[in-house]
Lab assay of single mutants.
Amino acid sequence: PEDLERKVRELQKNGVSPEQIEKILRRDGVDEREVQELVKKVS
């Protein structure tokens, strides 16, 4: 979803590592495939 992507970009802009971003997304209940997609987009 659009807002998730925005969140991921925000986190990355704040210097959060892709690994941390993955953890955060998983903790928020984002589905694994979605997590991978989002992280791939920003890394």
Rank of each mutant, 00 (worst) to 15 (best):
K41R: 10
K7E: 04
V39M: 13
E22M: 07
P18H: 08
R6C: 10
K23S: 13
N14H: 11
P18Y: 13
V35E: 03
S43W: 06
D3I: 09
Q20V: 11
V16P: 00
L25G: 02
L25Y: 00
D28L: 15
P1S: 13
Q36G: 09
P18A: 12
V16Q: 07
N14C: 13
P1A: 12
E34S: 12
E34I: 15
E19F: 00
N14M: 14
V16H: 14
L25F: 00
E5N: 07
R9D: 04
E32P: 12
L4A: 05
V30G: 03
E10R: 08
L4K: 03
P18T: 13
I24L: 07
S17N: 05
Q20D: 15
K23Q: 13
P18R: 14
E10Q: 11
L38H: 05
D31S: 14
D28S: 13
V35H: 01
Q36T: 08
R27A: 15
E22G: 03
R9Q: 08
V8E: 01
D31Y: 03
E2F: 05
V8C: 07
E5C: 06
V30F: 14
E2H: 12
I21E: 01
E5M: 13
E32D: 07
K40Q: 12
K7F: 09
V42W: 00
R27F: 07
V8N: 00
R26S: 10
K13M: 11
K40A: 13
R6T: 10
I21K: 01
S17Q: 06
D31N: 10
L11M: 11
R27P: 03
L11W: 07
D28K: 09
G29K: 01
V39K: 02
R33P: 05
R26V: 14
E34K: 14
D31T: 11
Q20S: 07
V39S: 02
L4Y: 07
I21N: 00
Q20L: 08
R6E: 11
Q20E: 15
D31Q: 07
V16W: 14
E32I: 09
S17G: 07
P18D: 09
S43A: 12
S17K: 08
V42Q: 05
V35M: 06
K40C: 09
R26M: 13
